[in-house]
Write a protein that binds this DNA or RNA. Structure first.
Lengths: 225, 225
DNA sequence: CCATGTGAAGGTATTCACAGCC
DNA sequence: GGCTGTGAATACCTTCACATGG
């Protein structure tokens, strides 16, 4: 095999594959073909093979991929081979939903602390986690926490991020619908829920008959075909 | 100008631009240059100009873009020029947070109904919306609702989607962490929160010194440069 | 025979550089 | 002078086709 840089798009798909592999392992399988993984995760089989080829030969021709070995390797690449401890900032409606969210576990992600500015909420306990005063966010430094989830109003997002950066956080998932700046050693992924929903109508044909949303716009005769 | 097919990646950025334009309008501006829009939304100015060039000349050289005219055009392209009514399926922790989420409004999106299977929740009112029995989901047909947000457990997601499709829903935002199938006339966007968080550690260097996460993997001497 | 792994081809998106216009 | 609009160049990603090996 040859070693390559792993494309960003492949990295984005790796968690999907990981989920599919774990599901297949739970059904008792020990190996899986690119075709059946394709069916279960919704990605073409050749795309899957290409993606896996970027980081090694994990397949056996005629058989498929060894699930456990491949899952372990994907976890290593994604740096999910250790438990990753995360902190939540902002325990509003969305924040409390995230505290209760059971889906992080399968990736070895663990939300172990929550911070808030609202005095009424500080001290209350959600899901076994006691909410702390955001003024003390720096204490995460001594608690082996590398990730943060930001679920505060837009106006407070940049401040929260700044404080998290100085507290030594390395990666931030931001739910506030705005751009936030951070030094480039800190990775920020912004997930804007409303924006995802806003993207949907584009794909809905205006009339009931048309398939291609694009065809509503005129296409000039001199457009290159 | 020339008419082009609008690339998918551009469509993905349009809501970002829209938010930036509205923010700028709120500050009292009537026009904005690609450079300052770039600063406020975090996309390169040449990318912005290229994106806008796909659907027309909305700029004035030496000045910038007319904010109101451009915002209106983007809304038209995204089909957000009419109020879009949406339904929520699944009023658990995440679902109720979404019902309370104030961010949909700026895109003209309106969650007007919520459905659940749990008898205990049916009939209760959240944020002015009375939760209905999911068995009656077909009633959305007569209520001018084209979008749905699915926030149910993974095991029930496909069923929910199937029922929504027969109820005539045209676009679905799915929060369940799994692939769901739908006829291709119905657009489904899956937003897997845990997966986004899981992508973050990849970008964290294992040691404090390295910049490029990729360099942990060996690069063979014969790799094409 | 079956399924992987990979060069090569094809397609799409980003970046550049600058002509064109206000 | 400033800023847009856009062909051309580049980089990136996907798809194909098939050689390779169990």
């Amino acid at each position: 095999m040859r070693y390559h840089k792993i494309p960003d798009e492949t990295v984005r798909r790796l968690p999907v594959y990981l989920r599919g592999l774990m599901a297949s392992a739970n059904e008792g399988h020990r190996s899986i073909s690119s075709r059946s993984l394709a069916d279960s995760v919704g990605v073409n089989s050749w795309q899957i093979r290409k993606d896996f080829s970027y980081f090694g030969d994990f397949g056996t021709r005629g058989v498929g991929y060894d699930i456990e070995r491949l899952a372990k390797e994907i976890k290593k690449i994604l740096r999910l081979d250790v438990i990753r401890r995360a902190v939540l900032v902002g325990v509003g409606d969305l924040g409390s939903a995230l505290l209760a969210y059971p889906g992080f576990g399968i990736y070895g992600l663990d939300i172990v602390a929550a911070f808030e500015v609202a005095p009424k909420k500080i001290g209350r306990t959600f899901n076994g986690i006691t909410i702390e005063d955001f003024a003390r966010i720096d204490t995460v430094k001594e608690r082996d926490i590398s990730l943060a989830v930001v679920a505060v109003p837009r106006a407070e997002a940049q401040l929260a991020v700044d404080r998290l950066v100085t507290a030594g956080i390395k990666g931030i998932l931001n739910f506030a619908p705005c751009k936030v700046s951070a030094p480039k050693r800190v990775k920020v992924i912004t997930l804007d829920i409303a924006m995802e929903l806003a993207r949907l109508p584009y794909y809905i044909p205006r009339t009931g008959r048309m398939d291609e949303p694009q065809q509503v716009r005129p296409v000039a005769a001199d457009t290159v075909t």
